[in-house]
């Protein structure tokens, strides 16, 4: 009896996760902004990883042989493209639901991705090392930026690289990324971002430097409302990405 009941619950859970997976991956749904944003950051990652490791960008699987970590992977929007490009990918997220959702979707996509419900600190503790650590849109949500950045940085192999994407702590970001995106356009639920938790590039640079990484590039990402698209720019006042390497 108990056995039957448990399997019913499991089926219901799987059903719920599947529906959430569909939501995560619906470009017109709740995560539309991420889907819109994704090609821009993917293009940046691909270009920089290929340049750093001297890989041929026209090879269909240029990342073969590289080990990637995507920290705060959510439904796997970054992990799956990296896996398709040949990378060995570990996707980590503190949210167990996200991990279940990501696993279901990867199975549907026929991709082999190592998803784990864990934290950056726990992975670092276990001495995990990676060629590329992707740290996208997470740092503005953590309680202790320095501690978190130190854990993430530890996992970058010598000669490896890391990408950090976040939102700057400026008045412009308050206006556009918080007031604009959460209150006016309603792209994100209210309270997704808190102003005081936003991170300035120089704060990231200090934290990365303390962990032995060198920032080699900073690039802004700006939204063009007329084309409904995101583009790289020199304006780092709102969304920006930082690239750092361990020599």
């Amino acid at each position: 009896m108990a056995q039957a009941e448990r399997s019913t619950i499991d089926a219901a859970e799987v059903e719920r996760f599947s529906r959430m997976a569909a939501e995560w991956w619906n470009p017109q749904g709740k995560f539309r902004p991420l889907h819109k944003f994704n090609p821009t950051r993917l293009a940046y990652i691909k270009e920089k990883v290929c340049a750093h490791y001297n890989l041929d960008p026209n090879n269909p699987q240029p990342f073969k042989g590289l080990r990637f970590l995507d920290i705060g992977c959510g439904g796997g929007l970054l992990c799956e493209p990296m896996a398709r490009l040949g990378a060995t990918v570990v996707g980590a997220d503190a949210g167990e639901t996200n991990i279940e959702v990501a696993k279901i979707h990867a199975a549907q996509s026929g991709l082999d991705i190592d998803y784990r419900a864990t934290t950056a600190e726990a992975l670092a503790e276990a001495s995990e090392k990676f060629d590329v650590v992707l740290n996208m849109e997470v740092v503005e949500h953590v309680a202790d930026v320095d501690l978190y950045m130190s854990a993430c940085s530890q996992m970058v192999k010598p000669g490896g690289m890391t990408f950090v994407a976040t939102i700057n702590r400026t008045l412009k970001a308050l206006g556009l990324a918080i007031f604009g995106a959460e209150y006016v356009l309603r792209w994100l639920p209210r309270g997704t971002h808190q102003y005081e938790k936003l991170v300035r590039p120089e704060e990231l640079e200090t934290a990365l430097g303390a962990a032995g990484l060198t920032v080699t590039e900073k690039v802004g990402v700006t939204y063009n409302p007329f084309a409904d698209s995101w583009n790289r720019s020199t304006d780092t006042d709102v969304n920006y990405m930082v690239l750092a390497v361990r020599s």
């Binding site: 470009p27 017109q28 889907h35 090609p39 691909k46 960008p57 799956e80 990296m82 896996a83 398709r84």
Partner: peptide
């Protein structure tokens, strides 16, 4: 081809939307 080079799912609506627009 652009989507494939970024590792995106070439049949997904997120990718095909660009063609339609």
């Amino acid at each position: 081809v652009d989507a494939d080079r970024l590792g995106l799912d070439i049949g997904s609506i997120a990718v095909l939307e660009r063609y339609q627009t």
